[in-house]
């Protein structure tokens, strides 16, 4: 009995801890592996859109999803029905993978899954309580460096107290050593828009 429970729970926990959108562009090999796995599933089972959900209309039973990046980004539309699985993951702003089938001129969503992100090797995840405790101590006493990885505009309009704004393009462009503290043993905490 116990064994059975555990077997059921482990995959769930693994999924839950990696579930995150808005933080999904890790560029890590692990993530690429994951993507490749998804890709091969796609070929076997049909059509898939991967990207950020741009809108959901319950009245029109339609999901629009933005696929591709930058200038190549396109918004695609799929319909959903009562048989569509995982509609809780079809929320505006969330990264999702929509598996659909083509019926006539319509694309009907079969299943919506959250797009997964993996923690890079050598890092650990912290929860809200942990971070709140740090923030209440202040940067000096807590001896930490809190990084808001979102675009600058988001930082300005509302950030977690004591954060420093270092958008992803900045750390990539200037290098970690140029934008992070000199002390390599200081506790660094990174965050972004998370799942909405």
């Amino acid at each position: 009995m116990k064994k059975k429970m555990l077997k059921k729970f482990i995959p769930f926990m693994v999924c839950a801890s990696f579930f995150v959108s808005g933080c999904q562009q890790t560029g890590q090999n692990a993530a690429a592996d994951q993507a490749m796995k998804v890709e091969s599933v796609v070929k076997a089972q049909g059509n898939v859109y991967k990207g950020k959900v741009a809108g959901v209309s319950n009245k029109a039973k339609t999901i629009s999803i933005t696929v591709g990046k930058g200038d190549a980004a396109k918004t695609m539309m799929v319909k959903f029905n009562d048989q569509t699985k995982g509609m809780e993951h079809a929320a505006k702003g969330e990264a999702a993978i929509i598996k659909y089938e083509v019926i006539g001129t319509d694309k009907i969503a079969v299943e919506v899954k959250p797009k997964l992100a993996k923690l890079p090797e050598g890092t650990t995840e912290v929860d809200t309580e942990y971070l709140a405790n740090l923030v209440s101590q202040g940067t000096e006493k807590g001896n930490y460096f809190l990084v808001d990885s979102r675009p600058g505009s988001r930082f300005h309009e509302g950030t977690i107290p004591t954060s420093v704004s270092i958008p992803v393009p900045k750390i990539k462009g200037e290098g970690a050593l140029a934008v992070l503290p000199k002390d390599k043993n200081i506790q660094l905490v990174f965050y972004c828009g998370g799942p909405t």
Binding site: G27, E121, T128, K172
Partner: peptide
């Protein structure tokens, strides 16, 4: 976004790197 930045910090030699994924 943030996991990518955290990964860069680890590569640069930082020893105590955390991510507030949510």
């Amino acid at each position: 976004m943030s996991p990518e930045s955290a990964g860069l910090a680890v590569k640069a030699g930082y020893t105590n790197v955390k991510v507030y994924l949510k």
